[in-house]
């Protein structure tokens, strides 16, 4: 049986291509530095910024983030693949995540996932041909009291029934948050860093 060897010696990133991360994204990442004792600690928010800007985190993006944070690229790779929230391949404009933990499962998440698959015409981990939606599952969305729950981009939807799926998909605002996002991910650029509440500051 053929068992091919994965080549890890050759680079997959194109070193001659123009940089992926814009100066704005880099500036945003750098604005996180003062919150933490080490630059490494800014990795998670930095990856969120990159994912928001590019849609997903490619090899090249990992490498560039590593350069900005001055940490080894292998550690960025390590972290990106650990968290299911980070995507390593292109995805649609909106990502639908169906919870697959035990509470949601008991409350009908399995049937719900099938309904999404049917309506979108794609399987788990896939993206619709028009690039509008990607479908995924995740272990627990911490909404067991609203099971079965679904996440569309960053907006949570609780007690979703299979019948709700068409309406949910038809709603253009199904991913709009009612409350502003944490300041951790959206620092206001140019503002004096010392006057802003420091999200990452240690207590005590």
């Amino acid at each position: 049986m053929a068992w091919p060897t994965i080549d890890r010696q050759s680079p997959v990133t194109d070193s001659d291509a123009p940089p992926l991360l814009s100066d704005e994204v880099k500036a945003k990442i750098r604005s996180f530095f003062e919150r933490y004792e080490t630059r490494r600690a800014a990795l998670l928010p930095a990856l969120h910024v990159v994912q928001e800007s590019l849609g997903y985190i490619s090899w090249r993006a990992m490498d560039e983030v590593a350069t900005v944070l001055d940490i080894p690229a292998s550690e960025v790779f390590d972290v990106v693949t650990f968290y299911t929230h980070y995507w390593t391949k292109p995805r649609g404009k909106k990502t639908i995540v169906v919870c697959r933990s035990i509470t949601c499962e008991l409350m009908g998440a399995g049937v719900l996932l099938e309904a999404f698959k049917r309506h979108l015409g794609v399987g788990e981990g896939e993206t619709t041909p028009d690039g509008a939606y990607s479908l995924a599952t995740e272990e627990c969305l911490a909404q067991c009291d609203h099971a079965p729950c679904v996440l569309i981009n960053e907006k949570k939807h609780g007690r979703v029934k299979p019948d709700d799926v068409p309406a949910l998909l038809a709603d253009p605002d199904n991913d709009k948050l009612e409350v502003p996002r944490s300041d951790l991910y959206d620092p206001v650029l140019g503002e004096d860093a010392t006057t802003r509440p420091r999200g990452g500051e240690r207590k005590g």
């Binding site: 050759s10 080894p72 790779f77």
Partner: peptide
């Protein structure tokens, strides 16, 4: 580095940084 999580854990290097 250790990539992925749980039962899918693997040891790896960053491609091109052998």
């Amino acid at each position: 580095c250790v990539t992925h999580r749980g039962s899918e854990n693997e040891i790896d290097v960053f491609p091109g940084k052998a």
